[in-house]
Design a protein around this nucleic acid. Structure first.
Length: 581
DNA sequence: GAGTTTGAAACT
DNA sequence: CAGTTTCAAACTC
């Protein structure tokens, strides 16, 4: 970074020029001038690759200005003892930050933060990259981040972000989406991940859902930018990430399947970037299929295609899942948006009044204390069962029309299906394994297997747990709570009111993260060996579970344990414990 | 991409 | 509660 002395002079010692001009006005102007020069500086070139949506805003936004002061201070402090070059860097960093500040408009909700956190990060990363050559990237990242924090909690950025992300009711879902994004691009994601989380997570309580929504968009957009710049600054960004979430998640995310979705979700906001748009432009169907392939039929990041329901009925997957519709959705006259929060909540209430369990997880696991299904459910390896059961007449429970099949669970006594041939377990109690064998002989349909492991998202590579976050959560005997947990994260925001349980779930969230991580890793390994085996394990009540106490606390965040993951995997089984034990 | 099939959700 | 209609996803061509 060879910065023209000229600029440096201006930034570093604007006053020196004042000698020539003693006019108070001149003084004032000069004192302000440093910003502009910086922009045009070579440094700007470094960011050149970045396509900031609105560079000018940096200077026009009052918001930015307000932040500027404090940030400037912090920077000064950090660069205080450094040489002129460092000072320059500091000033540069300041510039960047200011810009960010101007961009950050809304107080986003926790959820959203989780969701799109990555968006903001890129900037930071860029920042780092800019200075990268001369400064420790990690420091840079941290340095930049701190100033941004709008709340005093920044100190616990990562821990908080973790909670937010995984603490969501949809742990698995949210987590998956999160992973998917991560998987999109190791370098880019990792880089963005860490940084993004912080700024976002710290934001204050969301006052406006709309704002929140906007926040998502923006973040996504920002997030995108980094990706584009990956070539220039990718390295630095990745480095930033590695230390924390990035590495851990990346490892997990490596499990391929999610990569597709990752792409989608990473751009899920209202991304105007042409490049991004192109990626997402595929038809709703394609999108859906992508997400399915990514690993989750029922609960993965979903996008609806509602035309008449206004996304205010359970027909709408987004609504049913408790999330707002977002850009990727192809719905018409959608009311399932933060703007119509009141309507959404009212409608939801109405539906719940009609059926209190309407938003409860459809699939439950008997291994947990939830035994709502039937005794029969415990007869099969896959203890998970659809709560209400299906009512299939023609699909033989072999297609995704069947909710049981779609959820990757066997039919149960609760099902009223006809000619059930559910590969995950028949209504009559046939186990998945048995069925599998049977099909080999009976139907002798290679397609069937193909369908199971390809068309059905979960079975192949994704353990059941991932698909059925709610049901799996050890907690919930409380359906109400579960209801709030709803199914997916979706890159969209969870309804604001859902955050109430977040705190209570925080510990659990940690455990879930780890559990998922383990399972996922395990899954990856098993997949290589035998898909079927994997499925069984995934569904089995014996599938590994981690008690809250086990994970609890500071005990190193899941991230840190990353390295220890394999060790955990070696453990055959964990007793199924409830978090409250 | 358009059209068909399917079964859940909603309605009566 | 049962029957019918509506709806959107899943599926097929």
């Amino acid at each position: 970074m060879d910065t023209p002395p000229k600029t440096v002079t201006q930034i570093g010692t604007p006053i020196s020029k004042l000698k020539v001009e003693n006019s108070p006005v001149f003084n004032f102007i000069n004192s302000l001038s440093p910003i502009k020069p910086v922009k045009s500086i070579p440094i700007a070139q470094t960011f050149g690759s970045l396509s900031f949506s609105s560079p000018p805003s940096v200077f026009t936004s009052p918001h930015a200005a307000s932040h500027k002061g404090s940030r400037f201070k912090s920077h000064n402090n950090s660069s205080k003892d450094e040489s002129a070059s460092n000072a320059e860097l500091a000033s540069i960093g300041e510039e960047v930050e200011v810009e960010e500040a101007s961009i950050e408009i809304e107080p986003s909700t926790q959820i959203i933060k989780n969701d799109c956190i990555t968006a903001t990060t890129p900037k930071v990363v860029n920042d780092g990259s800019c200075k990268d050559g001369e400064m420790d990237l990690q420091k840079m990242c941290d340095h930049n981040v701190k100033p941004k924090s709008k709340t005093p909690d920044w100190g616990s950025l990562f821990s908080d972000s973790e909670l937010l992300i995984y603490g969501s009711p949809n742990d698995s879902e949210a987590y998956r989406c999160f992973l998917q994004r991560q998987s999109n691009s190791e370098t880019r994601l990792s880089g963005g991940k860490k940084l993004t989380l912080e700024p976002v997570s710290n934001s204050n309580e969301p006052e406006s859902s709309d704002a929140l929504h906007r926040g998502v968009r923006r973040r996504c957009l920002d997030f995108e930018i980094p990706g584009k710049n990956k070539q220039t600054s990718g390295e630095s960004s990745s480095r930033c990430v590695v230390r924390n979430i990035g590495l851990h998640l990346n490892a997990i995310a490596m499990s391929s399947k999610d990569s597709n979705v990752a792409n989608e979700y990473s751009f899920s906001g209202n991304i105007k970037s042409s490049a991004l748009v192109e990626l997402n432009q595929s038809s709703p169907k394609k999108k859906r299929r992508k997400s399915e392939q990514a690993g989750d039929g029922e609960s993965s990041c979903k996008r609806c295609n509602c035309k008449k329901s206004k996304c205010l009925k359970l027909y709408c997957e987004c609504f049913a899942a408790g999330v707002y519709c977002i850009e990727p959705c192809s719905c018409i006259d959608c009311f399932n948006k933060p703007i119509h929060e009141d309507t959404v909540l009212a409608t939801r209430k109405q539906i719940e009044s009609r059926n209190p369990l309407a938003f409860a997880p459809k699939v439950i696991r008997n291994s947990d204390s939830i035994m709502e299904v039937g005794d029969d459910a415990t007869k099969t390896p896959a203890s998970a069962r659809h709560k209400r059961g299906c009512n299939c007449k023609k699909s033989n429970c072999l297609k995704k029309y069947c909710e049981c099949y779609q959820s990757g669970v066997g039919c149960s006594i609760n099902c009223r299906c006809e000619g059930c041939k559910n590969a995950f377990g028949r209504k009559d109690g046939s186990s998945f394994v048995a069925m599998d064998i049977e099909h080999d002989d009976e139907t002798a349909k290679p397609q069937h297997h193909a369908e199971l492991f390809n068309s059905v998202p979960i079975p192949p590579s994704t353990p059941m747990p991932l698909r059925q976050p709610l049901a799996q959560l050890p907690i919930s005997s409380n359906n109400v709570l579960l209801t709030q947990q709803s199914q997916h994260f979706h890159g969209a925001s969870l309804y604001k009111y859902q955050s109430f349980w977040k705190q209570d779930m925080s510990l659990l969230s940690h455990s879930r993260i780890e559990t998922i991580t383990e399972e996922r890793a395990e899954d990856t390994e098993n997949l290589i060996q035998s898909p079927i085996t994997t499925n069984i394990n995934a569904v089995s009540p014996n599938s590994k579970r981690v008690s809250v106490s086990h994970l609890d606390s500071s005990e190193s965040s899941p991230w840190r344990r990353n390295s220890g993951r394999k060790l955990l995997l070696s453990i055959p089984t964990f007793p199924s414990l409830t978090p409250h034990h």
